[in-house]
């Protein structure tokens, strides 16, 4: 079902192409020279020790963090270009945060329909119908009139995923989506993400869940100290890590 976005060369353009991305805060280099392509349908898990720049990398993809060098192309358009309408591109890039960040002053339904109604001119009926459909899929249709504060962490995160999906994004960015959850709630969130991957949603997931990476991702990226060290298909990646740094890291977490 992948739409063809052909370049002049006739070569298929990746959905997201990161080109020599750099990010530093003052003298502190967080990311250096990262180049990677993400195709439609890819499920990329980004792993690495804390402080390695994984989250910064993810947040650069929708410019929540402003890159200090390099380019990021989405559908061939440079989203780091100041003249690019970043708000329009963000509509195509759903984001899920560690802390859920649901809007506490709105009901679940309002959380889900606000952006589609205000930004995509979707009618309330249409927006609610689609939101209800997605809510049913994550098993939370009965909580539509609740407020976020009344839900458990796992439920809030599933709602946060649905909120991003309501914008019908082309890619979903997950920033450690299960790190703030109690252990017994991790499963329900991962299972929603698994379903999403099965539906061929393009996903970039910063995570510590090695099991999820192994099982669901088709590519695993390892970042360490702002360097993009190694990448591979999960089976190969976990069984035969090439670099010392990755071996070291896997030795600690597995």
């Amino acid at each position: 079902m992948a739409q063809d976005n052909t370049q002049v060369t006739g070569q298929k353009e990746a959905l997201i192409r990161v080109d020599h991305l750099e990010k530093h805060f003052g003298d502190h280099v967080v990311l250096q020279d990262i180049s990677v392509e993400i195709d439609r349908g890819d499920v990329v898990c980004v792993i690495g020790p804390s402080g390695s720049g994984k989250s910064t990398f993810l947040r650069c993809l929708n410019r929540l963090e402003e890159p200090t060098g390099g380019h990021i192309y989405m559908d061939g358009i440079d989203i780091c270009d100041p003249t690019t309408d970043i708000d329009r591109h963000r509509q195509k890039m759903g984001m899920v945060f560690q802390q859920f960040n649901l809007f506490p002053h709105m009901t679940i339904m309002r959380n889900l329909t606000l952006a589609p109604m205000k930004l995509q001119n979707v009618s309330q009926r249409e927006a609610e119908a689609y939101a209800t459909e997605l809510l049913e899929r994550v098993g939370l249709a009965d909580r539509r009139d609740a407020y976020p504060g009344e839900l458990s962490g796992g439920q809030q995160q599933r709602i946060a995923i649905v909120r991003a999906l309501c914008m019908k994004p082309e890619v979903m960015l997950f920033d450690e989506p299960t790190s703030a959850l109690d252990p017994e709630m991790v499963g329900e969130v991962l299972s929603v993400m698994k379903d999403l991957a099965a539906e061929k949603m393009t996903m970039v997931v910063v995570t510590h869940e090695m099991g999820f990476a192994r099982e669901v991702a088709n590519r695993v990226m390892f970042l360490d100290g702002g360097d993009f060290v190694e990448e591979g298909a999960p089976a190969e990646f976990f069984a035969h890590p090439k670099s010392e740094r990755l071996k070291n890291f896997l030795g600690k977490v597995l």
């Binding site: 929540l64 329009r88 960040n101 930004l119």
Partner: peptide, 27 residues
């Protein structure tokens, strides 16, 4: 209002003013 609220608004595609109006100000 926590910074994450602002980021959540922006990540959905709201611009600065819309995020302030719909998400930050009411809170």
């Amino acid at each position: 209002v926590p910074r994450g609220q602002f980021e959540a608004g922006r990540s959905l595609g709201f611009n600065y003013a819309q995020t302030m109006l719909h998400i930050i100000m009411p809170q």
